[in-house]
């Protein structure tokens, strides 16, 4: 095959000859076949979604009832549900990340009591379904503790609150989702922290930085590269997990659409309304994740990947002036033996 002899520069005559030859690109017939199949399937789907009709109760109507979807897409109860969904997502993720960082640092601590209690926390919250946890926070707490007291441990009470008024379905939802998310985030953060080279901590220490400073300024920013992608995943997942608060009588996006379809029986169009909104916010989160990842890639990659906008600009440029391959760019292919 291509030994050192094959790599050696061919003599000038041959190379000029080859450089002037027409280049025949590799053909990919199967790509055309699969593309054709996919196009047909897409056409069928679009047709079914937009143009097909069915007869329901003696009247002929569009299969997906887009008019009904459009009517409820921006209905006030739906928008209120969206606010609840977004609030729960933000609260649960922010609290989850904070709890996650604390737990991750505890788990990595040489102190057995700290690492042990973090381990126990993670074991418990990952080991029980989040649905059970939510229900527990909603009904369990008020059942076990009718009053919640803030004060000196085993001593005087400063504030006493009635649990049933304090623990609304929103509070229970936010609490349950945050505590559960913290357990998952801690494993993500821990993976990020241990991915950072020990030499970094050592170099920071040799400059006189304290452990806390080193964690904040040196270790966590580098761990972010590992932490961000799964955290984006968790956020997208959380957006939809918040719909579980419907079982503890929270009115989120999903429950809001359910409430509507319970009165007008337009079940499918309202499921479509909910799905469209979930898809919309997931798309926004996906775009956000791209830019956050790009920010934390500084110093890790020699050149940052282009943003979609930059890529568009480049390909436009490419179309306008299609470059002729320079002689030096045409790879010299050694003859096979």
């Amino acid at each position: 095959m291509t030994g050192p002899a094959g790599l050696s520069k061919p003599d000038a005559g041959v190379s000029r000859d080859r450089a002037s030859m027409k280049i025949v690109p590799v053909r990919h017939p199967w790509r055309w076949v699969t593309s054709g199949v996919i196009l047909v399937l897409v056409a069928m789907l679009v047709n079914s979604l937009l143009f097909s009709h069915v007869v329901r109760g003696g009247t002929r109507e569009g299969r997906f009832q887009w008019a009904v979807v459009g009517h409820y897409l921006f209905a006030t109860p739906v928008l209120r549900g969206i606010v609840v969904t977004l609030e729960l997502t933000v609260i649960a993720m922010v609290a989850g990340v904070v709890i996650g960082i604390i737990l991750a640092v505890m788990r990595l601590s040489p102190n057995r009591l700290l690492s042990g209690s973090a381990w126990l926390y993670i074991w418990f919250f990952r080991g029980t379904p989040v649905l059970v946890q939510l229900t527990f926070w909603y009904v369990g707490i008020s059942y076990l503790y009718t009053h919640l007291t803030l004060g000196v441990p085993f001593g005087a009470a400063l504030v006493t609150l009635n649990s049933t008024t304090l623990i609304t379905s929103f509070v229970a939802g936010a609490l349950g989702l945050s505590l559960n998310e913290g357990a998952y985030m801690s494993e993500i953060v821990r993976a990020g922290i241990i991915s950072v080279d020990e030499g970094q901590t050592e170099a920071a220490a040799s400059l006189g930085m304290s452990k806390g400073l080193t964690l904040r300024k040196i270790v966590l920013p580098q761990a972010m590269r590992i932490i961000i992608p799964p955290t984006g995943n968790e956020t997208i997942s959380m957006l939809k997990t918040t719909s579980l608060v419907s079982v503890i009588s929270g009115v989120d996006l999903f429950q809001a659409t359910q409430n509507i379809s319970n009165t007008n029986y337009e079940v499918v169009p309202l499921l479509v309304v909910a799905s469209l909104w979930y898809l919309f916010f997931t798309s926004i989160l996906t775009i956000g994740q791209f830019y956050v990842e790009r920010y934390y890639a500084r110093g890790a990659a020699r050149a940052l990947p282009p943003t979609p906008f930059q890529r568009l600009k480049m390909s436009l440029h490419h179309v306008r002036a299609k470059p002729v391959p320079a002689l030096s760019e045409v790879p010299w292919v050694a003859p096979h033996d």
Partner: peptide
């Protein structure tokens, strides 16, 4: 250090 240990994100 032998392996420099510069902070790569800075």
């Amino acid at each position: 250090f032998q392996r420099f240990n510069l902070f790569p994100h800075m």
